[in-house]
Design a binder for these strands. Structure first.
Lengths: 139, 139
DNA sequence: TGTAAATATGCCTTGACACGTATATACTTG
DNA sequence: CAAGTATATACGTGTCAAGGCATATTTACA
């Protein structure tokens, strides 16, 4: 029994830059393979392969027009991505003013270090000494 | 000169299922590596590596709490994804009734086991014959 | 200071996937 | 039917990410 390879989750599909480009192209209107090929300057087989992936993943659909195939978008999978993203929305809007307050505070007194979060200290807060604080973590 | 490996676009970052799981976990509150490890049942090195990717990509940030590192979300990159997704929004709401009409039509004529795509003739309506041809597209 | 806990890193293997080139298939028109 | 156009598919190849395992690093604590 042949098992389907990979490439299921909508996220893996849109991870590919060329695929995203194709999808963006199709927002305006349906396009043939050749048109996509020219506009994005990719080779024809590459376009066809990506379209295949997109079609099998349900991001696009095609109809036949003589020797051409016209591809257009389908909405479902996008909504899926959107749904996942939704759980973070509340978070990021909530964080905008928190950040503002934070920056505001920063501006006033010089160095009240870190913790933008409600200082939710956990476990043993034993720190024998206010050690010069962590090094610039991020990267 | 060390060049940064790969993994730039936010989309590639969230393409990884484990990474998405971690992000979802962090929605509720910040977590230590160990907590993530246990909840998601991944090995510690795997968690650390994914966190590193997420951190370098700007999806999360960390602070030091004794030997622990507490990771929490950062909003920016999510917004980036959201922004890309935005261009499709108008499209998918507009397409809901179009889809309904589409399904309605499907119900009427039985044939073409082909693709979910209906043979919707456009342009040159010349087709000498409605050849039932066509292998099952979508695997 | 030695040991344990928590986390990070390095190396290696494996598998997926994107691309190119070549070729097959489908449809059109003369 | 031949030749051309548009698209799909097969195969070979190079790249790179993900995970396993071992080990380094950092900090707490007895």
């Amino acid at each position: 029994m042949e098992y389907i390879k990979g490439m299921e989750s909508a996220f893996e599909i849109i991870a590919e830059p060329n695929r995203r480009a194709i999808l963006s192209l199709l927002v305006s209107s349906e396009q043939s393979v050749g048109e996509i090929e020219r506009q994005l300057r990719m080779t024809q087989p590459t376009v066809s392969k990506h379209l295949r992936v997109l079609r099998e993943a349900g991001f696009v659909e095609s109809t036949v027009d003589a020797q051409r195939r016209l591809y257009r978008l389908r909405p479902e999978r996008f909504q899926e991505v959107d749904a996942w993203l939704a759980q973070f929305r509340k978070f990021w809007s909530a964080h905008i003013d928190a950040l503002e307050r934070h920056l505001d505070r920063m501006g006033r007194f010089p160095s009240t270090p870190d913790q933008a979060t409600p200082a939710k200290k956990k476990t043993k807060e034993k720190m024998t000494r206010p050690k010069p604080r962590g090094k610039g973590e991020t990267k």
